[in-house]
């Protein structure tokens, strides 16, 4: 039987993927778009989005009937910092 290798993603990596997905959509996005961008199930995405809101990295807003998630300044700083940290770790051969 062939063993499938599922790539492990750390919590920081998942946060970065979610925030990057929002950033790619102009800094604000609905859950469906983020879901595809971050490659997560709806339940897991909502759980992580709650944590990101608590951390002050994302803000929840209402636009008509739709709930959207907006990147805060702290969130943008995190994305920028994560890119640098990723390059640093990659140079040393450390997976994050």
């Amino acid at each position: 039987m062939r063993r499938e290798h599922k790539e492990y993603r750390s919590k920081a990596r998942i946060y970065a993927d979610i925030l990057n997905s929002i950033l790619r959509h102009g800094g604000k996005s609905g859950p469906t778009r983020i879901l595809y961008g971050a490659n997560l199930s709806y339940d897991r995405l909502m759980k992580h989005l709650r944590q990101l809101i608590d951390l002050g990295l994302v803000q929840e807003e209402k636009e008509g009937n739709e709930v959207i998630f907006k990147l805060t300044d702290k969130g943008r700083t995190f994305v920028l910092e994560f890119v640098k940290v990723e390059k640093f770790a990659e140079a040393f051969g450390i997976t994050i």
Binding site: S10, R13, V85, I94, I96
Partner: peptide, 8 residues
């Protein structure tokens, strides 16, 4: 501190 990776 950003990632929590033990290697770092």
């Amino acid at each position: 501190k950003t990632t929590g990776a033990k290697g770092l």
